[in-house]
Simulated assay, not measured.
Amino acid sequence: MPADLPLADELAALTVRIADLLLTHETVDEAVSALAQALKESVPGALGAGASLMDTRGRRTSTAATDPTILQADQLQYDLRQGPCLTAWAQQATVKMVDSRTDHRWPAWTRAITDLPLRSAISTPLSTPDGAIGALKVYSPIPDGFDSKAIRLIELLARPAALMLANAQARDAAERLSDGLIGALGARDAIGTATGIIMERLHVSHDKALATLISASRRREVALHQLSRDIIAGGEL
């Protein structure tokens, strides 16, 4: 992206790109990965970038990093339960780390990344009207590696990205629910059909046939719906 674009034009171009990336990826994980890569390419001075979605307890639900070094730094934050990304998410505010060697807010984490080529970072929350759903972060190999324009760019980018990711999460949840319902209905239908087959084979009542099916499932240590499908396919009890 040309460095001489005014911030408003740069943001507009970047937002269009992000929207296209997030809306065309089929899963949340793919969208988060695309967002991290776009962030790295868009912020001057960034060694790498990451994007994470978190639940209400701060546990990751989806995360992506552009480089192994960034992935390691992020993993250390989650393992140690401290770091600029988690602080940005918890406080719903942008966090700037000027120099990892002089910043004492996250002592265990900054000690852990001493051997990594990371000296400064910006983390900003992915905020929606219902609260923060995660955070974006960029890292630099030099102290104070990001200027005020970079910080503003990340903050402005995070707003539409958060809304689009929240929509993607809702879409994925609805699809999982739909798949679960379809599976449950399929299992119920299979059990009902298998019960009917047993009624015909043994000349027993519905209740007796279902009890026989359940007993066979326990005896053979096979899931009830699986045994039902086996019987429908011609298998024996």
Rank of each mutant, 00 (worst) to 15 (best):
A65F: 09
A150V: 01
L126D: 01
L47T: 06
G134L: 03
R105E: 00
T63M: 11
I231P: 13
L213P: 09
S215A: 15
P125V: 00
T195A: 02
L22I: 15
V98P: 14
A31Y: 07
V95F: 07
A90Q: 09
I18H: 04
A90I: 01
A190T: 06
M54C: 05
P6Q: 01
A233C: 04
L237A: 04
L202M: 12
S140W: 00
V28P: 03
L157A: 08
A65I: 03
R57Y: 13
I197K: 14
A93T: 07
E175L: 12
L136T: 00
A158H: 03
V43Q: 02
K96T: 11
G83K: 06
M97Y: 00
L5F: 08
L210Q: 07
Q169E: 01
L213T: 03
D9N: 08
I198Y: 11
L80W: 12
G235Y: 08
G50E: 02
H203T: 11
F146H: 04
L71V: 09
S140R: 05
T66F: 04
S42Y: 03
T27V: 02
T110I: 04
I232H: 10
P141H: 05
A209W: 13
S123C: 13
A190F: 10
R188A: 15
L181W: 12
L47S: 10
A223S: 05
A121L: 06
Y139E: 02
D67M: 07
H25G: 03
I122W: 02
I197L: 14
G145Y: 02
G58R: 03
A209M: 06
L11D: 06
L47Y: 15
E26L: 12
R105W: 01
L181C: 04
D172P: 09
R229N: 10
L163V: 09
A13P: 12
I151K: 14
T195G: 06
E236K: 15
T27K: 07
C85S: 13
L237I: 10
P125W: 03
A12Y: 09
A88R: 01
S217C: 09
R152G: 14
D115V: 05
L76K: 13
Q77E: 05
G50A: 11
L80E: 00
P68C: 08
R229W: 08
H225R: 13
G131N: 03
G83V: 02
A184W: 06
A49G: 12
D115W: 07
E236Y: 12
L14N: 09
A121P: 08
D67K: 09
R59C: 04
A90R: 13
L210K: 11
L86Q: 07
L22T: 11
A90M: 06
S123H: 10
R201F: 08
P2E: 04
V16N: 12
L224T: 00
A132H: 08
T56R: 15
W109A: 01
T15Y: 04
L116W: 02
I191R: 10
L71F: 10
M164R: 12
L177Q: 15
E236L: 10
A190E: 01
R152W: 11
